[in-house]
Design a protein around this nucleic acid. Structure first.
Length: 203
DNA sequence: ACAATCTGGTAATAGGCTTT
DNA sequence: AAAGCCTATTACCAGATTGT
């Protein structure tokens, strides 16, 4: 049961974006024969790498949009450029994520009549969510930048810091995925994170 | 330790608008 | 009008994590 709802209340339920949303991955794996795929070649192969950890894509996307509103393709190009062209997320991963984020209320989409391009902008909830999970988002960004050798905007970051961040991320995930936190626990949880943030700022 | 599930990511594909 | 690029969705696969 990894519902991973990031601990927040959304006004509307988790509905399917287009009424479809057939998961089809676990159960009904509709295989329409005659479809040719896997023609070899392409981009570095499948399953070659899990660039982002757990739910990192959402954070990165949100951060990118918060920095500068753009369309889906622009986001992809932005990420590609940020990674030096080594890695470019496929549209199949960014668009559903964008739609999901939009439905969650973190993103706001403006449809431009001329062009049909959707311009995604961040909402107040999105910023709040980003602020709440700033550690994770930063860890993801660091991981993304760290993937490239020395091309990271942070310059030289000690690996132990990245390790600690990932450790924190893992701990948080383990704690949040399990039994739901009570109010007291949630308060304590937030207090710990806030304290850590303050200490970090003092360094 | 094994099995089931989920998330993340890629490839291919389809439709629409822009440009030449 | 045709071609090309941009946008968007679907299907499948591979790895990781969780539960038993």
């Amino acid at each position: 049961m990894r519902h991973f709802h990031f601990g927040h209340h959304h006004s509307h339920h988790c509905h399917s974006p287009r009424g479809e949303h057939e998961d089809g991955l676990s159960g009904g794996r509709g295989r329409h024969g005659g479809e040719e795929r896997m023609h070899g070649g392409g981009r570095g192969g499948r399953g070659g790498g899990r660039v982002f950890g757990h739910g990192g894509l959402r954070f990165v996307l949100l951060q990118l949009i918060a920095d500068k509103p753009a369309h889906g393709y622009e986001l992809i190009k932005a990420i590609e450029d940020r990674l030096g062209g080594s890695y470019a997320p496929s549209p199949g991963v960014v668009y559903p994520t964008l739609t999901l984020l939009e439905e969650m209320g973190y993103l706001s989409v403006e449809m431009a009549d001329t062009g049909g391009r959707k311009r995604y902008s961040i909402t107040a909830s999105g910023r709040e969510f980003l602020a709440a999970n700033r550690d994770t988002a930063d860890a993801m960004m660091a991981r993304m930048s760290g993937g490239v050798d020395g091309a990271g905007p942070r310059g030289g970051r000690p690996p132990q810091v990245t390790r600690a961040i990932e450790n924190l991320k893992l701990a948080m995930r383990m704690r949040l995925s399990g039994t739901p936190l009570t109010e007291q626990q949630a308060h304590d949880f937030a207090a710990v994170l806030d304290s850590a943030a303050q200490q970090l700022e003092r360094i």
